[in-house]
């Protein structure tokens, strides 16, 4: 398996092995809708692995809460409850487990969602790398909220809620000790309030939502474009990237479009509602830097392009494993 960085290999793995064996056709959604009586429940689960476990702006505990809450939010849900499962490697200091759990509790309280059930397993040394966290979330769909990966329409405006690549570069910097005093802080945070505000003014005009985690904005947009049967045209200089992230990406030779975010979303919104939705986003701290970054086109279907400063267009491909140089 060389599927660690998300993106296309991961998509293939899920599609060709897991969905096939389960006998389901997995729609490329962050969370599933489960209808009971006249209630639309939203259900999502996610495993968290991060090195290092503590990084500027968060840790594996807060990340596990935010990640699952955000997956629910991307289907237009208000979170109701979380479960928490630990897989602990023997030898992990108890103090560290305590610190992570305290962080889970703080994050959950800030979101306003209780942890209602859980599980803890300890495995032998070497059978795991320290600590893995799995959270499952249950939510209920907001009225008038119908966001889905496949609902983007040509002409829709592409909105991004905040600067890209903050989380991925914060983690890399923490891992690498780059020696560039980057000061990059992870954007890890819950997005359910932002989504609620968007739905309130946009309703069904909010066609698709996605939090660009692993594989970054490039992978998220490629997935959404393929699912919606549209093309995406971004304007390169409109993409929000902080100066620190840009500098660190330049040094490491990374494209910010491929770097993970944990507190940022991309939305496809019908053009007539776009300004309204954008204004509502900017009224909240997590959407303060929201901006319009592009539009959906008729196609080529599934292709994401970025218009460069000099007026040509580059193809923004989904990431396959690591970014590999392609220049001969």
């Amino acid at each position: 398996l060389g599927h660690g960085s998300g993106g296309r290999l991961m998509a293939e793995l899920i599609d060709q092995v897991i969905a096939t064996e389960l006998g389901v056709t997995a729609p490329p959604e962050d969370a599933a809708l489960v209808g009971i009586a006249d209630l639309d429940l939203v259900f999502s689960t996610d495993g968290y692995v991060v090195t290092p476990r503590f990084f500027p702006g968060g840790d594996i505990g807060s990340l596990a809460v935010h990640g699952t809450v955000n997956d629910l939010a991307m289907r237009g849900a208000r979170p109701l409850a979380l479960s928490l499962a630990y897989l602990v490697e023997e030898g992990l200091p108890i103090e560290e487990l305590r610190r992570v759990t305290r962080s889970v509790a703080r994050a959950a309280a800030e979101v306003g969602v209780p942890v209602v059930t859980g599980d803890t397993k300890v495995v032998g040394r070497g059978a795991a790398d320290g600590l893995y966290v799995t959270t499952t979330g249950l939510g209920v769909r907001l009225r008038e909220a119908y966001p889905s990966a496949g609902s983007g329409q040509p002409g829709d405006v592409v909105l991004v809620s905040g600067p890209l690549g903050q989380h991925g570069m914060a983690v890399l910097d923490a891992r690498a000790e780059l020696g560039i005093d980057s000061g990059i802080i992870s954007d890890s945070r819950p997005l359910h309030r932002l989504v609620a505000a968007m739905i309130e003014v946009g309703g069904a005009a909010v066609h698709s939502l996605r939090d660009p985690t692993r594989g970054g904005l490039a992978s998220a947009l490629n997935e959404l474009a393929a699912a919606s049967g549209v093309g995406v045209e971004l304007v390169e200089q409109h993409l929000p990237v902080s100066a620190q992230v840009a500098a660190a990406c330049e040094l490491l030779g990374l494209d910010p479009l491929h770097v993970a975010c944990e507190g940022c979303l991309v939305a496809f919104v019908a053009p007539e509602a776009a300004d309204r939705v954008l204004t509502a986003m900017r009224a909240l701290p997590e959407g303060e830097q929201a901006r319009r970054v592009g539009v959906l086109t008729q196609g080529p279907v599934g292709r994401v392009l970025a218009r460069t400063l000099i007026g040509s267009h580059r193809v923004v491909d989904m990431l396959v494993g690591e970014q590999l140089p392609r220049i001969c």
Binding site: R175, A176, L251, L252, G253, E322, Q323
Partner: peptide, 18 residues
């Protein structure tokens, strides 16, 4: 010097250094 230090560190950690 910032570029040199950063690259030296990236090489040392094999960070995006195919």
């Amino acid at each position: 010097p910032i570029e040199v230090r950063g690259i030296r560190s990236a090489v040392g950690k094999r960070l995006n250094c195919p």
